[in-house]
Amino acid sequence: MLKALLQREALVVFRSKEGVLNPLAFLFLSVLVFGIAAPLNDRNGGEYGVGVLWVLVLLTNLLSLDALFRRDYDSGVLEQALLNAQTPWLFVMLRILSQWVCTGLIMTLTSPLLGILLGIPTNGLPVLGMALMVGTPAISLLGAIGAGLTVGFGRGGVLLALLVLPLFIPVLIFGVGAVKNVLDDANYWGQIYILAALSLAGLISAPFATLASLKISVAMR
């Protein structure tokens, strides 16, 4: 059962290149646009670069979250999964996991490159990667609640942003804070711990809340 679900998710992730490629391309393109509008480098970068990168991470995630359940919802797979699966929350969790792999994990892996483009000093890059690694799960998990709720609307994008962006603020603050602290030679572990705590809190609550929101959306069909 679990194996079948995992296989399906793995297929979705690796077969469709767009799932992995699109968010990444969007992120790099945004960085490019930023670089053209307001070039950032070591002199003025640092602080600004970190902030810009985190904001772009949030926005990219938002775009990807909008599509999180859409295909399954439209094709009716979602309804089936909620009705028949022994553990519907496992289905939800795996869906979120694969979304995170396509966005958060890939952003973490490419963060050194993004950081350099945005003029973040190299001594901040390891902590940037670590903060992204422990912080992005919280974004995917919290965002999934809103994604489940808005999947029933033809165009839920703006509503999704309105609902979940305020909830992302803590992740943004502590994520930026960690990197800024390392650039200031200050202690950054506190922020990392908080980010991890936020992600864990999302992990134990979001699957159930997402399930509830998906049930509402399915009932709306």
Binding site: W189, I194, A197, L200, I204
Partner: peptide
């Protein structure tokens, strides 16, 4: 499944509390 869920939730809550305590120790 219920047992698994309970363990999952309890470990999660315990880990969150531990992390927050760790963070508070860091004088953020």
């Amino acid at each position: 499944q219920r047992l698994f869920l309970m363990t999952f939730l309890l470990t999660g809550v315990a880990a969150i509390v531990a992390l927050i305590l760790l963070a508070l120790e860091e004088n953020m």
